[in-house]
Amino acid sequence: MTLRAIISTKLGAYGYFAIALAVAIALLFAWVFFKGGYLLTVLQLAMIYGVFCVGLNFFMGYTGQASFGQNAFAAIGGYGSAILTVQYGWEPILALVVSMAVAGVAAVVVGYPTLRLRGHYLAMATFALGLITYDVSVQWTDLTQGYMGYSGIPPLGIGPFTVEDDKLKLVCLAVILALGVWVSSRLRHSRFGRALRAISSTELGAAALGIRVSRYKLLAFIIAALYASAAGSLFAHTVGFISPEVFGLQMVVVTFTMLYVGGIGTVLGPAIGAVIASLLPEVVRSTGRFQDIAYAAVLILMLIFVPKGLSTLASIGRRRPIKAGAEG
């Protein structure tokens, strides 16, 4: 298969834009690599937020539901990893996987009753979930060490091989994010993904075609929780320190921004949004005390001129194919 064929069949309308984007991101990475320093950390965090957003996109993008409480699952991942590695000396990888399992179970327990709610009610219920988790992480000091948080969390690694170097960390995180995007793409373009997207548009229509709406919503919620937990664990192992503030309301606001800037409901949007929204504060920093205003202005301009997100720039002005082959 030629490169061109791969682009047109696998990536569809995103084809050329994806290539251009890949080149731009590769250049950015190369530059940051060469320069090193603070921007390395910024990009590391962008990758971690990216993982979180790709997961959140399953629930909010593909399935069209609102969750303001996904930070709760990131907290489970972060604290799970911190406690298991620092207190009990577990392998980081194992701690990450076990934390994800715990987050998954928590998502079932929380999701089963709350996903009966819709729209604003679901948003409020999930919002409460995030707030409760924050309070728990502050108050349950025996488990979480309160505001002090956990420090000295070991970096990721397998056996004797650990990822200590900041540049290597970034590479590993980028690979993990790419894996997350790949999973998202595979699931979106399948019977499962179609069912989620159908629900996002009309639950009545989906149910009439035999789709078990509540079951699919719960599955999307669980997937989002797994990604969030992984992101929380990655944060803990990358930064080496966590506290309640890491998984607070700020996280909800930041990730929502990323999701909408990049393009909610698209495959690449969440990852793109995470990178752009992470770098933007660094770019506008040069405006000194106006940086918050500049940041907000850029976001507003993006939402006005690219309301469906940066990842949809590609399809603007493109002609759609008349009829794709049966193999498409």
């Binding site: 595979r186 699931l187 373009h189 399948s190 019977r191 499962f192 993904g193 179609r194 069912a195 997207r197 159908a198 996002s200 548009s201 009309t202 009545l204 229509g205 989906a206 009439a208 075609l209 035999g210 789709i211 599955l219 997937i223 409901g265 794709a324």
Partner: peptide, 27 residues
Amino acid sequence: QLFGGMSVAENVEVGCHLATKGGIGAA
């Protein structure tokens, strides 16, 4: 009750839900 944000063909593909199988693992 059409599915917005999806093509005409994709709408019918969703209709095949009952006639097909496979979940997350298969995808």
